[in-house]
Design a protein around this nucleic acid. Structure first.
Lengths: 231, 231
DNA sequence: TAAGATAGGTGTATATTTAACACGATGTTA
DNA sequence: TAACATCGTGTTAAATATACACCTATCTTA
């Protein structure tokens, strides 16, 4: 903001906490690092921001390069700016999160050599992570727990068509507590943004449940007046 | 995160949105810039982060240097990272906010020459601000509006001893809507963290109201089990 | 010192939301 | 066709939120 901008030896980076849901478990995306420092450690996908890209663009690019995933909607949730976060110098990091469907078809394949591989790992049993990534994960996890209470973010984790039981299982996984089935259904349906389909679950060895779909248009319509986006 | 950290010509800065409450009006702290770019414009207090200070420390220092205020509890709320935010180069900015008592005694006096003066300005009638500061202000204002619903942040804006009417006026100023007096009082008192004092307002030309105090210890006790800090 | 002005302080009734709680129906498999 | 597993449903009680109006205390001024 001064007349001449001073040059800094600071590095600016992005880390991503990407949540997925698979086999009734909440998971996050990790990479195995292939470069020092913390070579061979597990870490959140993260790398350095270039000068000619916004931080949102950088987040997309970096996630793609390290995991092969793209076109997901990420949001920043906190910036980590302690002096000694990185063993080799000053690094300030904006952390992003996203919730996505885990899709067995889509292969996770790093595009750069910085990551040896990328993989999903259950949040309940995380290994030690590189840098301060455990703290970053925890901060992000707390944010989505809170957010779940007033925004329909859970749908981003489920397949397009899902059963109410699946939805409830997901809520329970995120909030880490049991919910009452009848009350849960009553409340979800009362919002009016779930569309009941003429279709049922397939391939289950018991009575098949009805499938539902999250109706974004209805959601937008219902909550258009509520500027805060709260339910 | 690579083996050798590249050097970047990026600048990393802090901007502060400081809310105060005076004469029944919600205000924020602005400075008049004394250097290019945007010389003579009004702006949020903000400046560049040094390499050997955390961003939280930087926020404190910068606010002090530009306004003379110190020892207030600020929190980051968003990081602005578009490429062309600053006319002279790439600048990434972490925005902080705080809520404080406006104290007529404490003089606002910039310590550096970068600001010509610092002053309080009502949020309802803000002038054009330098850079993207209007957007930063709006983002911060929305955050505190939301936050007011589940955290007792309003007390930070009031004098230590206050009347329930003052508290209500403040809520109304932030939320920009009228509240019902009886319901407001009932609810506030029901939380149990307001301590009624044996004292009354002085110097008013009508019946004096009882004074109350926010009891932090009681608040902590009551909400210790609620990890999210929600009411 | 009485009258007027101004904000202080209080309660109840209704509507809405949340919480607790159990079992018969349906489809699958052996 | 029996056994199994999940599906899908409704009521009641408690808590919370909302709507609403008048008398009281204190100060000012005529």
């Amino acid at each position: 903001m001064d007349v001449i901008l001073p040059k800094f030896d600071s590095v600016f980076s992005i880390d991503c906490v990407i949540f997925g849901f698979e086999a009734g478990e909440l998971k996050i995306l990790l990479i195995e690092r292939n470069v020092e420092p913390f070579k061979d450690w597990y870490a959140l996908p993260g790398y350095i921001v270039e000068q000619d890209e916004s931080i949102d663009e950088a987040a997309e690019r970096i996630l793609y390069e390290l995991t092969g995933l793209r076109d997901l909607h990420m949001e920043q949730f906190h910036t980590f700016g302690e002096v000694n976060r990185h063993p080799q110098g000053r690094v300030i990091t904006v952390a992003y999160y996203a919730l996505i469907r885990i899709n067995g078809q889509k292969e996770l394949r790093p595009v750069t050599h910085y990551a040896r591989k990328a993989f999903w790992h259950p949040v309940n049993d995380l290994p030690k992570l590189a840098f301060d990534h455990t703290e970053i994960f925890k901060t992000g996890f707390n944010k989505i727990k809170r957010r779940l209470n007033y925004q329909p973010i859970a749908f981003e984790l489920l397949p397009e068509k899902f059963t109410l039981t699946q939805l409830q299982t997901l809520y329970e996984a995120i909030l880490n507590k049991k919910l009452d089935k009848r009350n849960f259904r009553k409340k979800m349906l009362s919002y009016g943004f779930l569309k009941e389909l003429d279709e049922k679950q397939k391939g289950v060895s018991y009575r098949a449940a009805k499938l539902y779909k999250f109706d974004k248009r209805k959601y937008a319509k219902i909550f258009q007046n509520d500027l805060t986006g709260e339910l």
